[in-house]
Amino acid sequence: MRCSLGIDVGSVSTNLVLLDEKNNVIRTLYLSTAGRPIEVLMEGLKMLQDEFNDSLEIIAVGTTGSGRQLASVLVGADIIKNEITAHAVAALEEYPETQTILEIGGQDSKIIILKNKIVVDFAMNTVCAAGTGSFLDRQAQRLGIPIEEFGKMALKSSIPTRIAGRCAVFAESDMIHKQQMGHKVEDIIWGLCQALVRNYLANVAKGKEIRPLVLFQGGVAANSGIKKAFEEELGLNVIVPKHYNVMGAIGAAILAKKHIMQSGRKRTNFLGFNTTLRNYEVKAFECKGCPNSCEIIQIYGNERLMARWGDKCGKWSSSLAV
């Protein structure tokens, strides 16, 4: 089977996706990055290899997410794309009419505005990560509710408790306070969902025009409470695509295939499952060239230097073509 591979290395999850030649999703993997991006990526590749044995032929590879550079070196990617473009491409593949994408991930939230199938505007959360996946995770943990149940819990409520959603720290203390006042947990959770949506619309969307079709993707889209809160606040139907949590990886795979076709190259840069799983090693050092003291990261594969980055001046990174 000829497939394109998309890899999204994010702060919280590392996702891998296989698409067939018609861009149908064959297999998705949603793995927790757990602070070990390299190991998890390798595990993911091994899982794919074990599952498909030799029946798999990779024709294109794309990487995205905050760890896109790293992933690209380790597997040999054809294209490295930012998350915003990747998410938009994946959304358009499934819903060509999309005009707005609400994306909430582990530590990022974004809004992407599309018009006539191209991105015309976007915004990302700046200094505040309130309302992103990591915060919800933490609250679920604190309340002793599995994160999978969090959204369903919210839907049980009929009277939402008002929660201050401006800041993650204040939201938490407000929740504790409301608990101590005797509010029911489901009301608090539903109130939290509403607060986070308000915060998102005020701080990320910032008055951008939200027109249908509205897609909600990223890990947090699993939370049906947030989805409902968005629908109520916007007065619009919000669609959660089937593969909402791996949309970035899907976009990267689509872009990689397109890139291969357009550039007229016959072969992918993919190093192959066997070579990718070779010995790699990361060596870091602090450059003493100037007071910036940049931390230089060097990635070695089979004892050969594959990539180097981390410097501000380009002395180290440009001495080696990535």
């Binding site: 905050s66 794309k81 930012n82 998350e83 915003i84 473009t85 191209i118 991105v119 505007d121 990302m124």
Partner: peptide
């Protein structure tokens, strides 16, 4: 910073 810049150039 880079993600924003790259996405902007994509636009």
């Amino acid at each position: 910073f880079n993600t924003r810049l790259e996405a902007f150039i994509d636009i």
